[in-house]
């Protein structure tokens, strides 16, 4: 287990370094931030001073070297635009995105697994087929359109829920969250549903395919032959077996939900990191973009690790092969 952990840590560090190189050089190639940042009216001396202050006068390899050395100490550079440390900018906005992604994840997994089980157990029933048709819709509806429609129906017409923003937040362990206020939750529902719809459809399909396969297995019939109630057969014997592919995909998708909730955040004016990323790319605010992507890579690595741990909880056969590695 320890060997496995150390090996994973090494892989993670390597991925982070390669990512930093790619992004740094990539953004450098796109354009010169000086053109965007410095007002055309500024005179040559002012321009020169700014360029020197931002370290943009140095050659690329030196800038990169400085960045990597500083990054080792946890300093990912200062934003060209805001003048604040890039990491701090991101961390301020991260909780809003995280809570949005987590609520969306909970919705996607619970609704998706439940509906998928249902559709898998009764594939030819009207309900089963309706669920599958609904999941096609969930796949195809564009995020921004769905968000706008939800706003139109629930915020504008019915006026049940607010149209945007984050609402009241409370501080929990130093992190501001809207999960524990009624106002905060009411702001959270629409964006979370918007973000969850695609993933729900995905989970429905996985859960249904898994259920149809597992339901035919001898061990399910044997469980019924033991006289177990059908709820025990479904929620213990079938459910635990179909969760393995669901966890895999959801693990991958959680990362993308956190990192790329940009569209949903924009539609609902949600103050998360998605909006920060878009602004930073437009302004060629290289430190923020680099720090953001490093952060994303870090989150992906964490999630993958969590998924591996979950695997071994779900499937006892994984535990053994891991111990051998």
């Amino acid at each position: 287990m320890l060997v496995y952990f150390i090996r994973r840590l090494g892989q993670a560090a390597l991925v982070l370094v390669v990512m930093a190189l790619l992004v740094f050089v990539g953004i450098y190639a796109i354009g010169n931030p000086v053109d965007v940042l410095i007002s055309p009216e500024a005179d040559l001396a002012e321009q020169q001073a700014t360029i020197e202050r931002l370290g943009l006068d140095k050659p690329l390899w030196e800038q990169l070297w400085l960045f990597l050395v500083n990054a080792l100490g946890g300093d990912l550079g200062r934003s060209f635009v805001h003048g604040e440390p890039a990491l701090q900018l991101i961390l301020e906005r991260l909780p809003a995105t995280l809570e949005l992604a987590l609520v969306a994840l909970v919705i996607a997994v619970t609704a998706g697994v439940f509906l998928g089980l249902w559709a898998g157990l009764k594939p030819d029933s009207l309900t089963g087929r309706s669920i599958m048709t609904g999941s096609i819709l969930g796949f195809s509806l564009p995020n921004f359109w769905l968000g706008l429609m939800l706003i139109l129906v629930f915020a504008v017409s019915l006026q049940w829920l607010p149209a945007g923003g984050r609402g009241d937040t409370v501080s929990l362990l130093g992190i501001r969250t809207s999960l524990f206020t009624l106002d905060g939750l009411s702001h959270l529902i629409l964006p979370a549903v918007t973000l969850a719809l695609y993933k729900t459809s995905l989970v429905i399909r996985l859960a249904r395919a898994g259920t149809r396969e597992v339901a035919l297995q001898d061990y399910v019939k044997f469980a019924r032959a033991k006289g177990l109630s059908s709820s025990r057969v479904i929620y213990v014997h079938v459910l635990k077996n179909i969760m393995i592919p669901v966890v895999t995909v959801i693990g991958l998708e959680l990362g993308s939900m956190i990192a790329f909730a940009v569209v949903t955040e924009t539609v609902f004016a949600w103050p998360g990191i998605g909006k920060l990323l878009i602004d930073s790319i437009v302004n060629l605010d290289r430190p923020v973009v680099v720090a953001y992507l490093m952060m994303t890579v870090f989150i992906f690595i964490l999630i993958n690790f969590a998924v591996d741990l979950l695997y071994s909880l779900l499937d006892p056969r994984v535990r053994l092969s891991e111990a051998k590695a």
């Binding site: 044997f222 032959a225 077996n241």
Partner: peptide
């Protein structure tokens, strides 16, 4: 049942 490899649930 016939196949002992299949009658027990592998994850329980």
């Amino acid at each position: 049942f016939q196949d002992p490899m299949m009658t027990l649930n592998p994850v329980l």
